[in-house]
């Protein structure tokens, strides 16, 4: 049966309104749950970079642990503290969107620093967030350094659409464990760490990490992300280091 153009137009309009309405409703209703998940995911990754959190199943426990253990601050490219934005509103490290900051020039970006504190309140590890390009889309990560600001205590990576089983393996603890204990400094020079090509490599130096077979390009993305962001944080690292020597003297 051939229908009139008016009917077709009307039908399309009504359908669009119904489907569109349905989608916007779902989006609004699911937003709080999604934001909670993202917040939980962020804090999980920050904690995951320094300690094994696989035994903590309840989200509330994890958030409580986070509040107890992690202190945060925000620095600029020179490593100086930033506490308020231009309008005078306080800046919270957890609210800084690394992905949004990635679009600005490095001088204009905000760089959050998370400090993992031990029982007595001393800083046990520094955790730095980072963001970069993988093979297909963005990758992001957190790198935790021991209090010597040289040895890697742990890493946590995330990605948008790396291939499951290949590049997506950067999110597995199996791959992330390979970074632990590696050093980012050679003497006084920042060299970062890098994943090498292939898997099961022997005789790696303390700046080399065993790669992922079939995901060399994702590994390259991780390498350049680490290199770039450790470079951005270097002024902060230097400040902290010299601060410590002064304190010791």
């Amino acid at each position: 049966m051939q229908r009139s153009n008016t009917y077709i137009l009307l039908f399309s309009m009504v359908l669009t309104i119904i489907l569109g309405g349905l989608l916007s409703m779902a989006s609004v209703m699911l937003k709080p749950a999604q934001e909670k998940q993202i917040e939980l995911d962020t804090k999980k990754k920050i904690l995951g970079a320094v300690m094994d959190i696989s035994s903590i199943k309840k989200p509330e426990e994890l958030l409580a642990l986070y509040d107890q253990k992690v202190k945060s601050e925000v620095v600029d490219i020179n490593g100086d503290l930033v506490t308020a934005d231009e309008k005078g509103n306080p800046i919270v490290a957890e609210k800084v969107n690394i992905q949004k900051n990635y679009r600005f020039a490095p001088e204009d970006r905000l760089f959050p620093v998370y400090k993992f504190t031990g029982e007595s309140g001393t800083v046990e590890a520094y955790i730095f967030p980072m963001f970069g390009a993988g093979l297909w889309d963005w990758i992001s990560g957190y790198i935790a350094l021991e209090d010597d600001l040289n040895t890697i205590k742990g890493v946590a990576f995330d990605h948008k659409s790396e291939t499951p089983g290949l590049g997506a393996r950067i999110t597995t603890s199996e791959v992330q464990q390979r970074f632990v204990g590696k050093k980012i400094y050679e003497g006084n020079e920042l060299v970062s760490v890098a994943m090498v090509k292939g898997e099961g490599n022997q005789g790696l130096t303390e700046h080399q990490v065993d790669g992922m077979s079939g995901a060399t390009l994702t590994g390259k993305g991780v390498n350049s992300m680490l290199q770039t962001y450790l470079g951005y944080y270097e002024p902060y690292l230097q400040q902290k280091k010299s601060g410590e020597t002064v304190a010791l003297n």
Partner: peptide, 19 residues
């Protein structure tokens, strides 16, 4: 889109894997 949004809200880890 609905499936994807529900996954994102309640099964975030799976949402990240399936992307």
């Amino acid at each position: 889109t609905l499936v994807s949004e529900v996954l994102k809200a309640y099964y975030f880890d799976m949402y990240k894997v399936l992307g």
